[in-house]
Nucleic acid binder design. Structure first.
Length: 352
DNA sequence: AAGCCGGGGGG
DNA sequence: CCCCCAGGCTT
């Protein structure tokens, strides 16, 4: 299947990149290892257009690896709120501290060393050494996978070893010895701008004449669609507990799991009585102020139906330490997007 | 090898 | 509504 795949693509790809590639992304100027690393982590499963504002704000607050390592975890999480995949932020922070402790803040230049850091796999490690240091290394992000799968007419289903294994072998074959930084950017740019998932612009592609999919008119069928399974439904009840001053009680979620490490609204088990639960969990007496409009939130593998209930504190707010805290409206930490939407809904803003 | 993690954008 | 996106970690 891949034996008749093209042998070389770098020359044509680089010539195209010089004229049509992306040369003004924020992490390209200046292109330090720290900036490339942070960008690569943010760009995992997240589109460029979404990342740019987060990246610039992150760099303004944490300009180098020492600043990031010295920061509080909450501060890092707050700058990630809304980006999703919060394990990325926890890993980024942990890796920054290890880089400072073990490497004096200087990035190692080998794929193997970088892969030993949390959150950095083979493709991200390759992108960092290629882009920051000009070291030869293949990458295989979503763009490169699609470009190479089409070039070699890989018909296996994405997400399987039958798909990934030949792609890594071909990624190694195509990665040139020279202009490694530009090549890495070029194959991603081709995938992002011409060799797109739908409606690939083959007429403008510098590799069309050697692309097996194009020559066989398979470019619309490769990559094959992923198998999709029915999305499970889940429900939860969240409490909007407000005190007299309009502050809201938030809970820091455990590090693992959904929204790990983020502040959010406390959840009440469905079977628990509201008053008993608040008494035992928070040590407060409350008045039930009624249900809010349920909110749906779609995750990749399930859909969450959030039943929110407004609860008024009776008496004085206790000072709480640790996993629960009272937050004034303008002092809220970063929240998961649906929780932020819930608190910002018109029915909420009236009395909070 | 397969399942899991979050939110946004585009068709 | 559907699918995918500069993937990696866990089991």
């Amino acid at each position: 299947m891949t034996d008749d795949a093209p042998e070389h693509i770098a020359d044509e790809l680089l010539a195209w990149f010089d004229r049509h590639g992306r040369h003004d992304l924020p992490w390209q100027h200046p292109r330090t290892a720290y900036r490339v690393w942070v960008a690569e982590i943010m760009l995992q499963q997240t589109q460029v257009a979404t990342v740019i504002d987060y990246f610039n704000a992150f760099m303004a607050r944490f300009p180098d690896v020492h600043a990031l390592a010295a920061a509080e975890a909450d501060d890092v999480m707050a700058h990630w709120a809304g980006l999703g995949y919060y394990a990325r932020a926890r890993n980024l922070h942990a890796a920054a501290r290890r880089l400072v402790a073990e490497y004096d803040g200087r990035f190692p230049r080998s794929v193997e060393s970088l892969m030993a850091l949390p959150g950095i796999g083979r493709s991200t490690a390759g992108a960092i050494v290629a882009q920051a240091f000009g070291v030869w290394a293949p990458i295989l992000d979503g763009n490169a996978k699609r470009v190479i799968a089409r070039l070699a007419a890989i018909e296996a289903t994405p997400g399987t070893a039958a798909y990934d294994k030949p792609l890594w072998r071909l990624a190694e074959r195509y990665t040139p010895e020279t202009r490694i930084t530009d090549y890495t950017q070029a194959i991603m740019d081709l995938g992002a701008t011409l060799c797109t998932r739908r409606n690939p612009q083959c007429a403008a592609c510098p590799l069309a004449d050697r692309c097996l999919s194009y020559r066989r008119s398979l470019q619309h069928r490769i990559p094959a669609p992923r198998r999709r399974s029915a999305r499970a439904q889940r429900e939860t009840t969240m409490l909007v507990v407000a005190d007299e001053a309009g502050r809201v009680l938030l809970e820091k979620r455990p590090p693992a799991g959904i929204w790990g490490g983020l502040w959010s609204l406390p959840e009440k088990p469905a079977e628990r009585d509201l008053h008993a639960f608040c008494r035992e969990r928070f040590g407060i007496e409350v008045r039930d102020a009624g249900a809010l409009e349920p909110m749906r939130h779609a995750f990749t593998h399930f859909e969450l139906l959030i039943h929110a209930r407004r609860v008024q504190l009776r008496g004085t707010a206790r000072i709480m330490e640790g996993e629960f805290e009272w937050f004034a409206r303008d002092a809220r930490p970063g929240l998961p997007a649906p929780v932020a939407r819930l608190l910002d809904a018109p029915q909420q803003t009236l009395n909070l």
